[in-house]
Write a protein that binds this DNA or RNA. Structure first.
Length: 735
RNA sequence: GCCGGGGUGGCGAAACUGGCAGACGCACGGGACUUAAAAUCCCGGGUUCCGCAAGGAGCGUGUGGGUUCGAUUCCCACCCCCGGCACCA
């Protein structure tokens, strides 16, 4: 068949339609209770300067869903904004002297142009940037609400410190002992810090993870690991010859008769006291100090030889009544549980190795259901399996689970312990000693203590800073006009808090702000959020699985408990899009392997680029970028254009279809048309598998060509009608 | 070690509920059109063997078993790759 080459000039089409969408405000929406709503959101962007293909993939995925849902009759909210605070802009300012505000706003403007040229259907009137006071004032407002409820609090603590970025990092921002952003090994530092009490929601966050049926299992697993719930018991071992007791946390109280020693972490408060009565207090203290530093290094390197030393003190096993020596061990973590553990070499591999190394006794306290009590002399490793209790006094013969219940109950009755739940999750440290972030709206008064800035004085605006030196702490502390302020309570001289908030605070609730982006009385009108939220479809990179996505779930609960939202889970369906790699690496400016979409837009137009990116692989899958297929997508669009142009005149005058008089060829094409509609709809809507939707559409065109050719030599009355139906359907599916 | 995901042509991939493995695309080869090229259109292709050919036979979805009339799909055992967590008591 020879269909003449059409004038397919996508660049002109892009301009024409993008102008029409812009002028007609085509994607703006308002609440409309008469229509079902659909909130489609892609993770907003850090304005680094240029959108690369990796970002673009995410926005296209979201746009496909948004456009599908509009065609299906939903009232679709599809907004975009900018996660505009953050270190890169401040670090650039230190190098170049350009103020972060200037560079950030410039970057936003450039990237917005790129997204518009891609034809992403955003409701731009709701655009927000977190670095603007009309956004970050609500961070401050919410901080104060959390402060009032004890969810934001200040304490001195050991924190993760990045010496390159010169700031504190949250636990979630430390990856393999290094800064998540710059990769520098994290140091420990003692600082007064603001924390958000995310641990208050640990169980809530964990329990409802089970209900997130439309989240990837991978993400839920990561969050469960991160929260790290352990069910166990706290039990006190009375000190022998000292007042008081040492409390331990254990998940295996059923093995307590096998606790032949007790281990303190080097950070444990009793370590200092025991040192004073030791034979050589200095050696005692030095050794403990060595363990404390070792632990940090050990977590990074992974391998540290287990070692410890005897304190000279004993405790009494509350169940067996036996005296057990107290040791300090380098592998016991000060910050987890009570910082002390009972040593059960029979059931715990670390304790086993420790006991073997130092000749401590091992007692077998569990026997298998179908076997005898093991001979400890034969053991080469611990036996953590559950079974029936042995050598455990009155508890002998009980199954492990039952024994745990009885022993815990007994401990409680005797007032020496209780069942408890331990989490690995820690409170979220949000103070940052940097400039380019939300000022923490607190005032330190020598007389009144820590006082919140009154609501009517919000926002605490970020002052202009002339010089970026990168030296010292908290740049805001160098601005006397900012720091010095009368106390709002007593009126006497006081000082502002000079730390700023972690930028993850900004991103933890922005999806609510989109529902009511210009509210200047509240972060959002609860009625509007009730209409739009939760977000029905959320897509973004899996790298946020335990940062942004757990913080956002936390904030949803805070807003819920403030009575402002009526759901707990902010994102119903989560799609974690696979990264786009170039030469096996993540694209980044520093690696110099960024693929810029603008060149491809100029070459092939927005439709070809979008179609190609969607056709490479399913959206969750990581892909290696090659330019190879882009031409193919362009060629296919030209084929669509060509066949549509060929049929245009005949189609507009074709009579209505009469199903009874169709030829076999016509029936086949008709069947293909409707099958394609079914497949594309299921692929986009249900399976979220854009690549096979593209394949299905290509197949329809592949059938349309020979049909067109056959009709050229032997046209039928119904042919144009069947072709029209196919082409109209196709165009709709493509759109 | 624990948890999650995966392993299918030269490449990206598809196979939705156990039913013709490799749809669709990229790259490639052949042909038509053209003075020629580009573009376009048509055809071809997992692999081995037999055949001049049309065609035929065998093997084939990480490996080894199993269930079944039938297995990429279900079951058992194992290997490898990717991601997450990890001295958490």
């Amino acid at each position: 068949m020879c269909i003449p080459v059409p004038d397919y000039h996508p660049q002109d089409l892009d301009k024409k339609w993008q102008k029409r969408w812009h002028d007609g405000r085509a994607f703006e929406v308002v609440e409309d209770p008469s229509r079902p709503k659909f909130y489609c959101l892609e993770m907003f962007a850090y304005p680094s300067g240029h959108a690369h293909v990796g970002h673009v993939r995410n926005y296209i995925i979201g746009d496909v869903v948004a456009r599908l849902k509009r065609l299906q009759g939903f009232n679709v909210l599809h907004p975009f904004g900018w996660d505009a605070f953050g270190l890169p802009a401040e670090n650039a300012a230190i190098k170049s002297g350009i103020h972060p505000e200037t560079s950030t706003l410039g970057n936003i403007s450039h990237m917005k142009g790129q997204l518009q040229r891609l034809g992403i259907s955003y409701a731009w009137e709701r655009e927000l940037a977190t670095c603007l006071p009309d956004y970050y004032r609500w961070n401050q407002w919410l901080f104060i609400r959390m402060f009032e409820r004890g969810l934001a609090y200040r304490r001195r603590s050991t924190v993760n410190w990045c010496p390159v970025d010169n700031t504190v990092l949250a636990n979630e921002q430390v990856v393999d002992g290094a800064c998540w952003r710059c990769g520098t090994t994290v140091e420990q530092k003692d600082l007064e810090q603001w924390f958000f009490r995310i641990t208050a929601y640990a169980d809530d966050l964990l329990a409802s993870a089970d209900e997130l049926s439309q989240w990837p299992e991978k993400v839920l697993t990561m969050q469960r690991n991160w929260i790290g719930r352990s069910d166990g018991a706290r039990v006190s071992f009375a000190l022998d010859g000292w007042p008081g007791a040492i409390e331990v946390f254990t998940t295996r109280i059923d093995t307590i008769y096998g606790a032949t020693f007790l281990l303190l972490g080097p950070e444990h408060p009793l370590v200092g006291q025991f040192a004073e009565v030791a034979a050589d207090p200095k050696a005692f203290r030095d050794q403990a100090a060595r363990y404390r530093s070792q632990d940090r290094a050990g977590r990074v390197s992974g391998e540290v030889e287990k070692e410890g030393f005897f304190t000279g003190q004993y405790v009494v096993n509350p169940f067996s009544g036996e005296r057990a020596p107290v040791w300090v061990a380098n592998f016991v973590l000060g910050e987890y549980g009570t910082g002390a553990v009972m040593g059960v070499p029979f059931g715990d591999q670390r304790d086993f190795e420790f006991a073997r190394k130092y000749g401590l006794p091992i007692r077998a306290v569990i026997r298998p259901l179908d076997g005898d009590v093991p001979d400890v002399g034969d053991m080469t490793e611990s036996r953590p399996d559950e079974g029936l209790l042995a050598n455990s006094g009155p508890y002998d013969g009980l199954a492990s689970a039952e024994a745990r219940r009885r022993l815990t109950a007994e401990a409680q009755t005797r007032g020496i312990g209780e069942g408890t739940v331990q989490y690995r999750l820690k409170d979220w440290g949000i103070s940052r000693q940097r400039y380019w972030g939300t000022p923490i709206p607190m005032i330190h008064c020598p007389h009144c203590g820590v006082v919140a800035v009154p609501d009517d004085q919000l926002p605490v605006e970020l002052p202009k800073l002339a010089q970026f030196t990168g030296r010292g702490d908290s740049p805001l502390a160098t601005i006397p006009e900012f720091v010095n302020i009368p106390c709002p309570t007593c009126g006497r001289a006081a000082r502002r808090e000079t730390d700023t908030m972690d930028t993850f605070v900004d991103s933890s609730w922005y999806f609510y702000r989109f529902a009511d982006a210009h509210n200047d009385l509240l972060p959002f009108d609860p009625a509007k959020v009730r209409y739009w939220c939760p977000v029905d479809f959320y897509s973004g990179g899996v790298e946020h699985a335990i940062l942004h996505l757990i913080y956002s779930r936390f904030f949803a609960r805070v807003f819920r408990d403030l009575g402002m939202v009526d759901h707990s889970e902010p994102f119903t369906h989560l799609l974690t899009q696979g990264m786009v790699l170039k030469d096996g690496n993540v694209m980044s400016k520093s690696k110099g392997n960024v693929v810029d979409p603008d060149t491809m837009l100029e070459q092939a137009g927005a439709d070809a680029l979008r179609l190609y990116v969607m056709s490479i692989a399913p959206p969750e899958k990581e892909v290696e970028w090659t330019d190879n297929g882009l031409d193919g997508s362009f060629r296919w669009l030209a084929r669509v254009w060509r066949v549509a142009e060929h049929w245009h005149d005949a189609a507009v005058t074709a009579p209505p279809l009469d199903a009874a008089t169709l030829t076999a060829d016509e029936r086949a094409l008709r069947r293909k048309t409707h099958d394609t509609i079914r497949r594309v709809t299921a692929d986009l809507d249900v399976r979220k598998q854009m690549n096979t939707a593209v394949s299905a559409m290509i197949e329809l065109v592949n059938d349309l060509y020979p049909f067109t050719d056959a009709q050229r030599s032997a046209p039928t009355a119904q042919g144009a009608g069947v072709a029209r139906e196919a082409i109209e359907s196709l165009v709709l599916l493509v759109s």
